Amino acid sequence: MQVTKALLASLLAVASAASAAVGGPVGAVQAVVEPAAHVPPVPLLWKVSDGDNALYLLGSFHLLKDGDYPLSADIDRAFAAAEKVVFEIPPEALLDPTTGQRFLEAAAYDDDRGLSDVLSPRMREQLQQLIARQGGTIAQFEGYEPWFVNLSLLMGLSQSLGFSAEQGLDRHLMARAEAAGKPTAGLETFDDQLRALDATPMDEQVIGLAEFIDRPRDMPGVLAKLHQAWRAGDIERLDQLTRVEMLEQTPETYRIVNVERNEAWLPKLQAMLDDYTGDDMLVVVGALHLLGEDGVVAMLRDEGYAVERICSACEVAVVDD
């Protein structure tokens, strides 16, 4: 299951844009929706300071449920303190009417191959059976690369489990920023995210899809574990389930989807600290981007900024112990 979890992590890392274009055309399984949780998730929230202003870094889960709200008071305070809210991509990019078409164009092959050419006969038959159970045919995916098929299956699965991209933390805070009249911005463009997805190696795409279609009934549990680790604010567990397994099992995907984008964001984050006086900002990105030595939290700490985790629930837990 390691590759499957790594692929899920990589897809969730870019789902802020992808979910705007892929509405879950195929469901991988039918599942019972879990009861709503009533305890606010423990936030993956850090405060980065340089003496005259602060940057709040918040780790998002792009697919959430009604029961994941309301949010922690820590997030509410960071949001209130921020003069500006920054996301992976600017909110207006999700409303662009060309989003869907551009997404499909990026998912298409740039040569004369099709899905049947990159999958083994056994994999193709398994995928056909999986899609047929949901009333579809493999023909609808023939022109698209495995990462797109994997993402389509993931979005369908997440919907059957009660998750929604519209309820994702980034989408929720985009709406709050608009309602509060706070300026917003993005660290990259929609096309940047598409290029990251499309640049992942074909062999790693196929491996990830094989894991999904070999064990479709295991996937709800995989997604549930990721969600539970995020809700618990469990950095070590989430790091193991996402970053570590992606690095070990799909190293090129890890480099392209995570490391290269983090490195591209770093100077922009530094500018928010160095070029502004008194204006605090809230930056909301996929939780994967904040974890480990390649994460932007560690990168900013290495640049000499003061970094602290903001987690009232963690402090209470320590006192209770």
Rank of each mutant, 00 (worst) to 15 (best):
G51A: 04
G51E: 02
D52Q: 15
D52A: 12
D52L: 14
N53D: 08
A54I: 00
Y56T: 03
Y56P: 01
Y56W: 11
L57T: 02
L57C: 06
L58M: 07
S60D: 12
S60M: 00
F61E: 01
H62A: 11
L63C: 09
L63F: 14
L63V: 08
L64W: 05
L64D: 02
K65W: 08
D66E: 15
D66W: 10
D68Q: 07
Y69H: 14
P70A: 10
L71S: 02
L71Q: 04
D74Q: 14
D74P: 06
D74C: 09
D76E: 15
R77N: 14
A78C: 03
A78Q: 04
F79D: 10
F79Y: 15
A80D: 15
A81L: 05
A82F: 05
E83Y: 04
E83I: 01
E83W: 04
E83F: 07
V86D: 05
V86H: 08
V86P: 03
V86C: 09
V86G: 04
F87R: 13
E88R: 11
I89A: 12
I89P: 00
P91W: 09
P91D: 11
A93H: 08
A93Q: 15
A93I: 01
L94V: 08
L94Y: 11
L95Q: 15
D96N: 11
D96A: 14
P97G: 10
T99G: 06
T99D: 01
G100L: 11
R102W: 05
R102P: 02
R102T: 03
R102G: 11
F103A: 13
F103Y: 15
L104N: 01
E105L: 13
E105P: 02
A106Y: 13
A107Y: 06
A107S: 09
A108S: 15
D112M: 12
D112V: 10
R113W: 08
R113I: 01
G114Q: 14
L115E: 11
S116M: 11
S116F: 07
S116N: 10
D117R: 06
L119K: 12
S120V: 02
S120F: 03
P121M: 12
Q126Y: 05
Q129F: 01
Q129W: 02
L130C: 08
L130E: 02
L130R: 08
I131P: 04
I131D: 05
I131W: 04
A132E: 14
R133S: 15
G135M: 13
G135V: 13
G136I: 08
G136Q: 15
I138Y: 06
I138E: 10
Q140G: 03
F141V: 01
F141C: 00
E142Q: 14
G143I: 05
G143H: 14
Y144N: 01
E145M: 14
E145N: 07
P146Y: 13
P146A: 14
W147H: 06
W147L: 04
F148A: 13
N150V: 00
N150M: 10
L151E: 07
L151D: 07
S152C: 13
S152G: 12
L154S: 07
L154D: 00
M155C: 02
L157F: 12
S158Q: 13
S160Q: 13
S160K: 12
L161A: 03
L161P: 00
L161W: 06
L161R: 09
S164Q: 08
